[in-house]
Design a protein around this nucleic acid. Structure first.
Length: 833
RNA sequence: GCGGGCGUGGCGGAAUUGGUAAACGCGCCAGAUUUAGGAUCUGGUGCCUUGCGGCUUGGGGGUUCGAGUCCCUCCGCCCGCACCA
C-alpha cells in the first residue's frame, strides 16, 4: 500500500474526530493516579485566535500530552473570558445583543482550537457570561460582603471616558486605560470595593513560596505593586483648630527638621482649613487646577513642583515650631495619608519645594564623615537634600544618635503622648470592582429607601442580565434605564426597591475560573470539595506576562478570600507559572495598522496544524520573544514531510515495533542508531521536563531523523528492527508536539493502539556508552589534534599517546612540559613553556 | 532614579558541573537527479589567510592548565516600577 503524499488536512481532521469521539482527553478524579492540572489563560472571545494564542496553547498542549504519557491524570480545560466591552461595542455597531456576538465568536474560536488538535477536556468548558457561571460569583460576592471583604464607598476613582466606566488602579497604565489607551480622569463616585489590602501582607509573604515555580520578574513586579514600606504615622495638631493632620513617613528620625507640611489636593482637610479665610479662593483654584490635570502630566517626573500656602499652620510636636501648611501638586492622595511632613534638608522633593518658596530648612542628620571631624553639615553648602544615614543634630535629647536607632526612639517618645506609632504602609489599594457597563455580571444587591443596601437573597441568584436589553448608541449601559431590571421589591421589607445597575469588573470572573474547571457542570454548588481538593492547585499555569499584576494578583487574592469564606482550602492557586514571550513580526508586535498580522487559519490551511505547532515551539524557547518567519514554518513543514517520506519508504520492510524494542545490535551502524535513539529520549525528556525547552527537544528529534536517513539503506536489509524501534521512538517523543502526523504514521506502521495511550519511553543508560571516544589534545589551551581512544582509557595511556602526536611534538619542541591535564574521555591539555 | 533581564555566525537560536563555541533550523554555495524549474537527496558554509596558521561569544581587565560560562569594570539594548513621603 502506498502512503501517498503528506496531506495534513486529511489526517488532522481524521485524528481530531477520533479524539473527540473516543473522549480520550476527558478525565475524572482518580485517587489512584497522581494528578496534573495544566492550564492556559482562557481567551477573550474577540473573534479569531491569533499567533499569541497558538503559542500559549501549543506550549500547554505539549505539557499536557507529555505529562499524560508520563503517567499523570492530566486535566487540561479550556473556556472563555466572555464578558467585556468589545462585545458591547460590536453590539452597538450591529444593533444586536452583546451575547450574539460573543457566542458567535466562541463558536468560531472553539473550532479553530479544535483544528489545532489541542487535548482539551471540552466537557469542562466554561463561558463566564453564562448565568450558570456568574451565578456563583454573585454568591461569592454575597459571602465576601457578609465577611466584610466587600464594602461600598464614595471615593475618587479612575474614569475612562471612552469606555464609559471606572477602572481599578491595576488597570491604569501610565495614566492611560489599559484597554483603549484613553486618558483616565478622576471622578468621585460611589463604588464597590474588595478589601485586597486586608491581604497585602499575606500576598507579599506568600510570594516566597512561589519562588521556585514563578518567574523572578513576576514576583518582583508583584512585590513592587504591593509596595510594603515600614515607617511611622505621626500626628500634627493644627494651630487655632481642633483638627489634626496625620502623616506617614519612613523618616521619623528627621522630625526635628520638618519645617512645613504638604497636603494632596484631594486631602479632605484642605477645605476645612481654608473655608472662610482670605486664602480660600486662591487655594481652591490651585486644587482644581491640580485635580483637573491629566494623570500623565501630573505623574511626569519633570513636573514642576508647585504649591500654595493655605494660610494655616500646624505645630511640630518636638520643636514646638509652627509649620506652614501647603497644598502641593506632588503629594498623592493615594499613598500614605495624603499628607507629608516636609523635611527639606533631607528629602529632595521637599528641598526643591522649599527652595522655590523660600521656606526654612533645618539640618538634623549629619553625615558620619563630617561628624567624625567634629563638623556639621551647613545649609549653605547644600545643593541637594542629604538623604543618606547619619548622626542626629539639632534634635534635642536625640542628638548624637544614629538615625536608624533614632527612628525607633522618636516614635516611642511620641507614642507616649499618642502622637506617633510605628506602622506599615502599602502602595496597594483596595480593588474597585464596580463597572458602569452592561456586559458584565450584575452586582447582586438592592437599594431600598427604608432598609438601605440589601443583599439579594441567595435563593434568588443568579441576578440575570436581561436578554432583551437594547444597547445604547451613546455607549452607556442600558441597565439603569430598564425598568424591568431596576424595579424590584426589597427582600427585607417587601417595599419598592431598585437593583444595583453596575456590573462586576471582568477580572472578577477570571479570578476563580480555574476552580470551576474542577467541577464545571455542578449546578448544586460552585464545585465539590472532592474535585477541588483533588485537582487544585494548578500545577502549571501558562500565559502572557501582561497579567503579572492584574489577573495574577487578583486570582491570588480571590483564592485566599474563597479560603476564608470556606469554599476552598488552597492558599495559592498556581504552583508554577510560565510566562511565554510575545510573537513578533519584523521585530515588532503584529498589528493591523502595519498589515503584518499572520493569521493562524492561513497557516493551518497551508501547512497544517502540526507544522504550525512545530514551528512555533521550535523557533525560540517559550519564555523568549518569537520572531515569526514564513521561511521558518516552511522548514517545519519540510521536516514533517521528511518524516513522512521516511515511513513511506520503509513501511513495507519494517516490522511493527515498540519504542526501544531493539536491544541487540549486530553491526556498528545498528549500534550507533540505537545509541542515537536512546540519546534522543534522554534529551527530549530532560528538555521538556526541566526547562520546557521544546526547541532543543525538537532539534534532538530532527537529529534522530537525520541519522535514520543516513543509515536506512544499510539497515533496511540487516536490521530492520533497529530502524523500526528508532522510528517508533521518534514518533513517540515527537507526538506531544505534532500529534496528528505521529498518530497517523504510528497507525501506518501497523500499531493497533494509539500513540497517546503509550507510556513515555525511558532510555537505557548502557545504550549510550561509546566504545571509542574523541579526545582533544591541546598545547597551552590550543587544540592541536584529536585522538580516537577507547572509552575510559587510563589517563596515563591517553597522555602517552597524546605526547607522541606529530603536531603536539611540533608545538612543544624547545619547551619544557610543566604540567599535563587529562580529563578522561574529554581532553588532554599540555602546559609547556 | 530603583528593580529585573539580555548582548554568541547573514538570521532564529545551541552549548549539565568551567573542558572541541556555533547543535538544530533558516538562508547561501556546490554536486546528484531533472528537458528545465520546483521538489528531493548528498556535501559544504564564523572571520582573516594562497598556505602554515591566526582570530572569534558587546569592550577592557582578572581568576584558571583551560572562560560564552566565574569575578571586577565599562558600553549598549529590552522590560517593569517610578515625585511612594
Amino acid at each position: 500500500m502506498s502512503l501517498g503524499k503528506y496531506h495534513p488536512e486529511t489526517i488532522e481532521k481524521k485524528w481530531q474526530d477520533v479524539w473527540q469521539e473516543s473522549g480520550c482527553f476527558e478525565v475524572e478524579v482518580d485517587s489512584e493516579k497522581p494528578k496534573y492540572f495544566v492550564l492556559e489563560m482562557f481567551p477573550y472571545p474577540s473573534g479569531k485566535i491569533h499567533m499569541g494564542h497558538v503559542r500559549n496553547y501549543s506550549i500547554g498542549d505539549v505539557v499536557a500530552r507529555f505529562m499524560s504519557m508520563r503517567g499523570y491524570n492530566v486535566m487540561h480545560p479550556m473556556g472563555w473570558d466572555a464578558f467585556g466591552l468589545p462585545a458591547e461595542n460590536a453590539a452597538i455597531k450591529n444593533d444586536s445583543h452583546p451575547a450574539d456576538w460573543t457566542y458567535a465568536n466562541i463558536a468560531e474560536m472553539r473550532e479553530q482550537l479544535q483544528r489545532l488538535g489541542y487535548s482539551y477536556d471540552w466537557r469542562r468548558e466554561v463561558a463566564s457570561c453564562r448565568p450558570e457561571y456568574y451565578k456563583w460569583e454573585q454568591l461569592f460576592f454575597l459571602k465576601f460582603l457578609e465577611k466584610g471583604l466587600v464594602y461600598r464607598k464614595n471615593s475618587p476613582v479612575n474614569w475612562c471616558p471612552d469606555c464609559n466606566t471606572v477602572l481599578a488602579n491595576e488597570q491604569v497604565e501610565e495614566g492611560l486605560c489599559w484597554r483603549c489607551d484613553s486618558e483616565v480622569e478622576q471622578k468621585d463616585m460611589e463604588q464597590w470595593f474588595l478589601k485586597i489590602t486586608d491581604y497585602a501582607d499575606e500576598l507579599l509573604a506568600d510570594l516566597d513560596q512561589l519562588d521556585k515555580g514563578w518567574p523572578e520578574r513576576v514576583l518582583t513586579m508583584q512585590r513592587n505593586w504591593i509596595g510594603k514600606s515600614y515607617g511611622a504615622e505621626l500626628t500634627f495638631s493644627v494651630k487655632d483648630s481642633d483638627e489634626t493632620v496625620s502623616v506617614f513617613t519612613t523618616r521619623p528620625d528627621t522630625i526635628h527638621g520638618a519645617t512645613f507640611m504638604s497636603l494632596a489636593a484631594e486631602h479632605p482637610l484642605v477645605e476645612a482649613l481654608i473655608d472662610g479665610t482670605d486664602k480660600a479662593e486662591e487655594v481652591r483654584e490651585f486644587v482644581s487646577k491640580v485635580r483637573n490635570m491629566d494623570r500623565i502630566k501630573r505623574g511626569a517626573d519633570d513636573l514642576e513642583k508647585e504649591g500654595v500656602f493655605t494660610g494655616r499652620y500646624c505645630i511640630n510636636p518636638l520643636t514646638g515650631k509652627e509649620m506652614p501648611i501647603y497644598v502641593a501638586n506632588f503629594v498623592l492622595m493615594g499613598y500614605g495619608t495624603g499628607a507629608v511632613m516636609a523635611v527639606p534638608a533631607h528629602d529632595q522633593r521637599d528641598f526643591e519645594f522649599a527652595t522655590k518658596y523660600e521656606l526654612p530648612m533645618q539640618v538634623v542628620i549629619n553625615p558620619p564623615e563630617l561628624a567624625e571631624k567634629g563638623d556639621t553639615l551647613a545649609l549653605g553648602d547644600m545643593e541637594a537634600a542629604y538623604t543618606d544615614p547619619g548622626i542626629l543634630v539639632n534634635s534635642g535629647e536625640f542628638d548624637g544618635m544614629e538615625n536608624e536607632a533614632a527612628k525607633k526612639a522618636i516614635v516611642e517618645h511620641l507614642d507616649k503622648s499618642g502622637l506617633g506609632k510605628m506602622t506599615v504602609n502599602y502602595r496597594l489599594r483596595d480593588w474597585n470592582v464596580s463597572r458602569q457597563r452592561f456586559w458584565g455580571a450584575p452586582i447582586p444587591v438592592i437599594y431600598c429607601d427604608d432598609c438601605g443596601v440589601v443583599p439579594v437573597p441567595e435563593s434568588e441568584l443568579p441576578v440575570k442580565l436581561p436578554e432583551d436589553a437594547q444597547v445604547r448608541k451613546d455607549g452607556k449601559s442600558p441597565l439603569p434605564h430598564m425598568e424591568s431590571f431596576v424595579n424590584c421589591t426589597c427582600p427585607k421589607c417587601g417595599g419598592a426597591a431598585r437593583r444595583e445597575t453596575d456590573t462586576l469588573d471582568t477580572f472578577f470572573e477570571s479570578s476563580w475560573y480555574f476552580f470551576r474547571y474542577c467541577d464545571a457542570r455542578n449546578d448544586e454548588a460552585p464545585w465539590s470539595a472532592e474535585a477541588v481538593d483533588y485537582w487544585m492547585p494548578v500545577d502549571q499555569y501558562i500565559g502572557g506576562i501582561e497579567h503579572a499584576i492584574l489577573h495574577l494578583l487578583y486570582a491570588r487574592f480571590y483564592t485566599k478570600a474563597l479560603r476564608d469564606t470556606g469554599f476552598v482550602r488552597n492558599d495559592e492557586p498556581f504552583a508554577n507559572l510560565l510566562t511565554q514571550g510575545m510573537v513578533l513580526k519584523d521585530g515588532g508586535k503584529m498589528s493591523k495598522s502595519k498589515g503584518n498580522v499572520v493569521d493562524p487559519n492561513a497557516m493551518i490551511n497551508r501547512y497544517g496544524a502540526d507544522a504550525t505547532r512545530l514551528f512555533i515551539l521550535f523557533a525560540a524557547p517559550p519564555v523568549k520573544e518569537l520572531e515569526w518567519s514564513d521561511q521558518g514554518i516552511e522548514g517545519a513543514y519540510r521536516f514533517l514531510n521528511r518524516l513522512w517520506r521516511l515511513v513511506e519508504e520503509l513501511q513495507d520492510v519494517l516490522p511493527t515495533a515498540a519504542p526501544v524494542s531493539f536491544t541487540d545490535p549486530k553491526s556498528e551502524t545498528a549500534k550507533s542508531l540505537r545509541r542515537k535513539e536512546h540519546e534522543t529520549i534522554k534529551r527530549v525528556t530532560h528538555d521538556i521536563e526541566n526547562h520546557f525547552q521544546f526547541n532543543t527537544a525538537i532539534a534532538a528529534v530532527m537529529e534522530l531523523v537525520n541519522e535514520l536517513y543516513h543509515c536506512k539503506d544499510e539497515l533496511k536489509a540487516d536490521a530492520p528492527e533497529a530502524l523500526s524501534s528508532a522510528i517508533a521512538t521518534a514518533l513517540t517523543v515527537l507526538s506531544p508536539v505534532a500529534p496528528h502526523i505521529c498518530e497517523e504514521l504510528w497507525e501506518v506502521l501497523g500499531h493497533k493502539c494509539r500513540l497517546a495511550d503509550l507510556d513515555w519511553p525511558s532510555h537505557d543508560e548502557a545504550a549510550l556508552v561509546l566504545d571509542e571516544v574523541t579526545v582533544v589534545v591541546q598545547v597551552n589551551g590550543k587544540v592541536r589534534c584529536k585522538l580516537n581512544v577507547p572509552n575510559n582509557a587510563p589517563k596515563d595511556e591517553v597522555e602517552k599517546i597524546a605526547m607522541e602526536q606529530e603536531n603536539v611534538v611540533k608545538h612543544i619542541e624547545g619547551k619544557t612540559v610543566r604540567k599535563v591535564i587529562v580529563v578522561p574521555n574529554k581532553l588532554v591539555n599540555i602546559v609547556a613553556n
